[in-house]
């Protein structure tokens, strides 16, 4: 009986009290991500650490850990948790890696990658989104993330080449500049599909002069509730 009480007390002490969404996040990772086959331990750890509810609009906080994307305004969305995890795993990020993200959005994907890699660079084309993401990431002390507000088409020449590039906004073309800024042996992941649709993730690999693509699983990126 005594040991049970101690265990309970310890459990209470060890559980981070300042984060009321901790349990939801653990459940999200277990049910939506691990159970669907994501195995990379660094990805799972990052997904457990990043407080997704801080990256969604206030009106959507209650849905933050649901298995769906959410709108963040300007017709943009924060991706479904599984999708973020899947994209992260596919990139095979290493602790010494330098990663570029095109389409910062709310900054969630950048935060997840920043938990794993050495340095994270992210570019957002919509000024309002870029500014708020920059502020959010700074407040959350993601000091290895740099945010730039610019057209992602040009990549980030000053920090190129990158070990991995993640493009979070679907695009009808893959900017040649991004291919150039990808290291030999580097990996790039891009979603393909309209906001209404099931989207397909595409992996681009650069090996010498040869660039190959692999069409991966269909994933939905669309949002289902109006941005508040």
């Amino acid at each position: 009986m005594f040991s049970i009480i101690i265990a309970l007390v310890l459990f209470r002490i060890l559980q981070p009290q300042e984060d009321p969404y901790y349990n939801q996040r653990l459940q999200m990772v277990q049910h939506q991500i691990e159970n669907r086959g994501i195995k990379d331990s660094s990805t799972l750890k990052a997904m457990r650490n990043v407080k997704r509810h801080l990256f969604v609009p206030k009106g959507s906080i209650k849905y933050a850990y649901d298995d769906r994307p959410l709108p963040i305004g300007y017709g943009q969305t924060i991706s479904q948790p599984y999708c973020v995890a899947y994209m992260t795993e596919i990139l095979k990020p290493g602790t010494d890696h330098k990663v570029l993200e095109i389409g910062t959005g709310s900054g969630y994907q950048a935060a997840v990658l920043a938990e794993i890699v050495d340095s994270m660079f992210t570019i957002e084309i919509i000024e309002e989104l870029g500014k708020s993401a920059k502020k959010r990431l700074k407040n959350l002390e993601y000091n290895n993330v740099q945010v730039k507000i610019e057209d992602g088409y040009y990549g980030w020449e000053a920090h190129a080449p990158f070990d991995a590039i993640v493009v979070t906004a679907a695009s009808e073309y893959i900017p040649p500049t991004l291919i150039k800024q990808l290291k030999d042996g580097g990996r790039m992941v891009i979603p393909i599909g309209s906001p209404f649709m099931v989207q397909t993730l595409m992996l681009v690999e650069k090996k010498g002069d040869k660039i190959t693509t692999t069409s991966l699983i269909p994933v939905r990126f669309v949002s289902f509730t109006r941005s508040k």
Binding site: E172, I174, P176, K180
Partner: peptide, 12 residues
């Protein structure tokens, strides 16, 4: 540039 070739290196 719909479905642009990955071998295209110029500016769009």
């Amino acid at each position: 540039a719909p479905g642009l070739s990955l071998n295209f290196t110029g500016p769009i």
